[in-house]
Design a protein around this nucleic acid. Sequence first.
DNA 1: CTGAAAGCGCTAACAG
DNA 2: CTGTTAGCGCTTTCAG
Lengths: 330, 330
Amino acid sequence: MMANIQQVAQEAGVSVATVSRVLHGQGSVATKTRIKVEDTIKKLNYQPSMLGRNLRNSESRLLLILIPKISNPFYFDIIKGIENIAISQGYNILLCETDSSPERENIYFDLVRTKMADGIISMDPAVNMEALMELAENHPIVQCSEYAVESDIPYVTIDSEEAAYRAVKHLIKIGNENIAFINSDKRYLYARQRNEGYQRALKEHGLAVKEEYIYHTEHLGFEYGQQAVKSILNLEDRPTAVFAVSDLLAIGALKEIHACGFHVPDDIAVVGFDNIDFSNMTNPALTTIAQPMYKMGTLAVDMLIKKIQGNDVESIILDHELIMRESTSG
Amino acid sequence: MMANIQQVAQEAGVSVATVSRVLHGQGSVATKTRIKVEDTIKKLNYQPSMLGRNLRNSESRLLLILIPKISNPFYFDIIKGIENIAISQGYNILLCETDSSPERENIYFDLVRTKMADGIISMDPAVNMEALMELAENHPIVQCSEYAVESDIPYVTIDSEEAAYRAVKHLIKIGNENIAFINSDKRYLYARQRNEGYQRALKEHGLAVKEEYIYHTEHLGFEYGQQAVKSILNLEDRPTAVFAVSDLLAIGALKEIHACGFHVPDDIAVVGFDNIDFSNMTNPALTTIAQPMYKMGTLAVDMLIKKIQGNDVESIILDHELIMRESTSG
DNA sequence: CTGAAAGCGCTAACAG
DNA sequence: CTGTTAGCGCTTTCAG
């Protein structure tokens, strides 16, 4: 079973070089020989071993995709975009869940150090940037969605500040003045940028920025949204609107607001961020910011493959969109 | 940059064999030599190339995980289980979304045919069983969750019939006699099994099985649950309970029931299946069947690695659990 | 148009 | 305890 190129050559009465040539359709081969070889390949049910090919070409045709949690819906469409392009270019992807743990991360970094992967698309906001930058000196790396300005690693992302600004502006427009903000940890760039967008919108409309309205969560999960709302609803000046930096947080908020006996959007309007599938399945459906996920994925992998091939690439900033649904349609 | 074993050997003044020996800590090496080699490795920042090692060992240390949709929450914990064990055993996983398309599937099958992957864990109910069985003749394959009885491919799963039976029995116990059933396509084994469980529960309690109460959906998505409920609510003898074969369907049902002005659980009780994270985030929270996902994953990968190592393995059937929440607490 | 041969980086059997 | 050597399966010069 499982013939190798040698056996095919022998059986076809040619040299391995010729077999290799017909395999790749390059270098001229007489039609007669080609047909003979092709027949033998079928007859022996031969499939070239990627192990041999990879060693010879010193490439693995594997791309590392780093995400913090595989279950975070935010990444689904990005991954889909990456995957489709990758496959069409003869690459496969290794989806790596880091749990934002440096040890896990390092296992994956080792994969490229040991040539098991040709490059990395990093989407983990909590990635160890120092390690990533060091790795980037010798290996192709691209950042997607989250990025570090100070590094030379190219990225594709959206304008988080502007997106947050638009979300909050929408809340103001429909009559809210007391707008709470559920943000994530300030050490993340996007958190800082969205915070600036939030503040810009308020200031532009002559509204005060109240520290007690800004809540920082440790993680982006559902339960953290619930927690945040619990504390927000206890404020004296109860907000009439909540803007959360992720849909998961917003969905948690939704649930907790209901649990406390309030109604969305009549009592409290809610806006999320990301437009994950579930944001349209909640009760009421969630107003949110949509990022062009799929496109982000395709662009990121395009960039990475270009880098692997030795070309230079430029960072890209994509557009976003405000999707209005029931949670603000008061 | 990126030294190879040769350069390390030269720099350390030993042979490549010795370097290989200290790399694997096997075969005796004089302490003095070992230290010298280890120092050189650090000095040159050497990391052995997996390409060379893999070719030599004719293995890739990559495991293929086939799932229909990466976004299906059902698989999250299974994958986590697989991943943790795999990594601890020095394997990495290639998460493959088949979209239940034979072409996509075949691309992935090629990965094992071309030695880029050492084995497969198939979790796609719609997998092309013929192709899979043929592949299984020459490559290690394990089925997880969904399986085909008639094949020799070992599997790990739960007793779907019994699980469905318990879910429906619970609905009967809390006073329901008219229980609708949102099932998926009958060509899937689990769908047939759950149908049997549903019918057994009804019959055991002297309730008639009404064909019009059984709805078959094309896919397991949220919107199919909505659709199903739309048609179910139009029945003359409106059911007072709904059992869906997946949480996603049940969550769609929840939303549509509300949209039609009914209340869960007072007017209609709902039970799902899978206990995905979101089943606890809905309003009301969903009663559902929990499968030991994580464990299923770890066992499946254990089995696969055993098979790769040439050992025989036996199929496993795991226990499940009924999780009672608000959607049936009327 | 085709073949011989070198070599990608590593492991392991064998000899010493 | 250590070195020599033969491949693993493939691609690609270089000659012919």
